[in-house]
């Protein structure tokens, strides 16, 4: 498939379908999967038997790598990041990795510095500051 060959997340080439889709940060996935797991728990005694290996592995993974634990903080992160005209994918990479410096942020999400985008170092720095504030007050 020729589309496959051009795939490059660093340039935000992830295919139209996924570019328009709603991206989820690890912490958001944790909220969704834990909720679903609780529902299963209420229905049967042995919920682990009910879920697929993919579900189980994903749940473990997002629990381990969630930067924000409480659902309110998770909501705030999305709200703050969405003020910066980011693509969904960029927003989630930043929310997942929580870079500390501007250089790190650009290394993680090279597409925020591409031509025609209004992100100078100052704006990025402000965004990272806002993010670390949520973490601090969580």
């Amino acid at each position: 498939m020729s589309g496959e060959e051009e795939e490059n997340a660093a340039e935000l080439k992830i295919g139209d379908e996924f570019l328009k889709a709603k991206c989820l940060m690890n912490c958001e996935v944790a909220v969704i999967l834990e909720h679903k797991y609780e529902q299963l728990q209420q229905m049967s005694d042995d919920p682990l038997n009910q879920v697929s290996q993919v579900f189980e592995k994903s749940l473990q993974y997002v629990k381990r790598f969630s930067r924000y634990k409480n659902p309110d903080a998770v909501r705030q992160v999305r709200e703050i990041l969405s003020r910066y005209q980011l693509a969904e994918f960029e927003l989630c990479v930043l929310g997942n990795l929580c870079p500390e410096t501007v250089e790190e942020a650009i290394a993680m999400v090279p597409s925020i510095k591409t031509k025609g985008r209004a992100h100078d170092d100052e704006a990025i720095e402000k965004m990272l500051n806002d993010l670390s504030l949520i973490k601090k007050f969580e």
Binding site: A9, A10, V93
Partner: peptide, 15 residues
């Protein structure tokens, strides 16, 4: 549904 799709060029954390 929630799907997990890895992309070339993506940076993520792993165990």
């Amino acid at each position: 549904c929630v799907v997990f799709r890895p992309f070339k060029g993506e940076i993520l954390e792993a165990v």
